[in-house]
């Protein structure tokens, strides 16, 4: 049971022309068992929010707080945030040649739990998780994200979500680039994770189509570095019909 609380978050990046503020006062609370969808046009800062919470060094928090059950997330190193129970499924998982998926998964699991997983149950767990996401067993011996198709990368992110079992999962455009079958597989994986109980989910997406398979409790419209409107699932339906035109003046 965890609560992720974001208060007045301002984030900037260094650019050639000086500081550029991308997040301009974000307030958001994700409680256990809640699914939040953050929707917004390209360039609105959705991904910046995700990476800032995970601690990517490119983003500099200039104001505000992020806490997990009251603990100061912003004071933690990247790896400590993951061990505290935060997980970010990335839009563009990075290739790491020479490191096999199975070695990576075992190393990450050991780091998160503070001890190596029991070998027998671990092998079984990995196999079951891979089955659940229609991942070929041979996948385990491939180099991490290296030469993976877009769909394989996304399924591999959800495989980690399943095995590392965080308290709060942030999914950054996990739906983008997936065909309908892959989208269903990935959505099922997220729903299974959520049904374990006590899990918070923050789903970042440009499109409404993943919301046919994952039902959010709250929908936030993200525009220009802050939340412009909040509502229930009906807000997503409105966006499906009207797009973001009412917020940004174009249909971007």
């Amino acid at each position: 049971m965890s609560t992720l609380e974001i208060r007045d978050l301002h984030v900037a990046v260094d650019t050639d022309t000086g500081d550029k503020e991308i997040l301009r006062g974000v307030d958001l609370v994700v409680r256990a068992d809640e699914i939040h969808a953050i929707m917004g046009p390209n360039g609105s800062g959705k991904s910046t929010l995700a990476y800032s919470i995970a601690g990517h060094p490119k983003y500099r928090v200039t104001r505000g707080t992020v806490t997990l059950d009251g603990d100061d997330v912003l004071a933690m190193s990247v790896d400590a945030r993951a061990r505290a129970g935060l997980f970010l499924a990335m839009q563009y998982p990075v290739e790491v040649p020479g490191v096999s998926v199975s070695n990576f998964l075992r190393t990450a699991k050991t780091a998160i739990d503070g001890q190596p997983p029991k070998l027998r149950s671990w092998v079984k767990d990995v196999k079951a998780a891979m089955d659940g996401l229609n991942i070929d067993p041979a996948f385990a011996e491939r180099d991490l994200n290296t030469g993976f198709s877009g769909g394989e990368k996304k399924r591999h992110e959800i495989l980690q979500l399943d095995l590392l079992d965080p308290n709060v999962a942030i999914l950054d455009e996990t739906d983008s680039g997936l065909d309908i079958d892959a989208l269903r597989v990935v959505a099922d994986g997220v729903n299974r994770f959520h049904r374990r109980g006590g899990k918070g989910v923050l789903l970042i997406t440009h499109y409404t189509r993943i919301l046919r398979y994952i039902s959010p409790d709250f929908v936030h419209v993200f525009v220009d570095g802050r939340i412009a409107e909040e509502g229930g699932p009906d807000l997503a339906e409105k966006l499906e019909i009207e797009g973001y035109v009412g917020y940004v003046g174009t249909s971007a």
């Binding site: 990247v78 993951a82 790491v96 990576f104 980690q160």
Partner: peptide, 10 residues
């Protein structure tokens, strides 16, 4: 960053 975001130490 990717590896550390999975709890792995620097």
């Amino acid at each position: 960053f990717y590896l550390q975001a999975r709890g792995i130490s620097p």
